[in-house]
């Protein structure tokens, strides 16, 4: 009866990662607020990192997944800083953070 408590495997972590990923995708698609879109992006990156760490633990090559996850973390930090700078810039010049309204570059 306690099998679901005793047997935690790779697949459990991948499932959590999949759910986080999809929650992030839904956030990106549903929100108009540019900061909300960034929140969704962070969820997606976290889901990817969770998968990397899980494969690191269950896979044959120790540490590789962890190191990759650290690099992802650094890129995510830079991405958040740059994206927020752009959002604030657009907000300053156009008084707008609705991603649907900022379409000056649209072809």
């Amino acid at each position: 009866m306690t099998g679901f408590l005793e047997h935690i495997g790779l697949m459990h972590f991948l499932t959590v990662g999949a759910v986080l990923f999809c929650a992030g995708i839904v956030t990106v698609l549903a929100r108009r607020n540019a900061v909300g879109v960034l929140i969704g992006l962070e969820l997606v990156l976290n889901a990817a990192n969770l998968n990397l760490v899980a494969f690191d633990r269950f896979g044959p090559a120790p540490l590789r997944g962890s190191v990759f996850a650290i690099f992802v973390l650094a890129v995510a930090a830079a991405e958040a800083a740059i994206a927020l700078a752009i959002v604030l810039n657009v907000f300053d010049s156009r008084d707008e953070i609705d991603v649907d309204e900022v379409s000056a570059l649209k072809g």
């Binding site: 929100r31 108009r32 540019a34 900061v35 909300g36 959002v87 604030l88 907000f91 008084d95 953070i97």
Partner: peptide, 15 residues
Amino acid sequence: GVLLTGRAKAQLGLE
């Protein structure tokens, strides 16, 4: 970011 963009009509949540 939320704080600095809060004054807009942009208290946009979901679509």
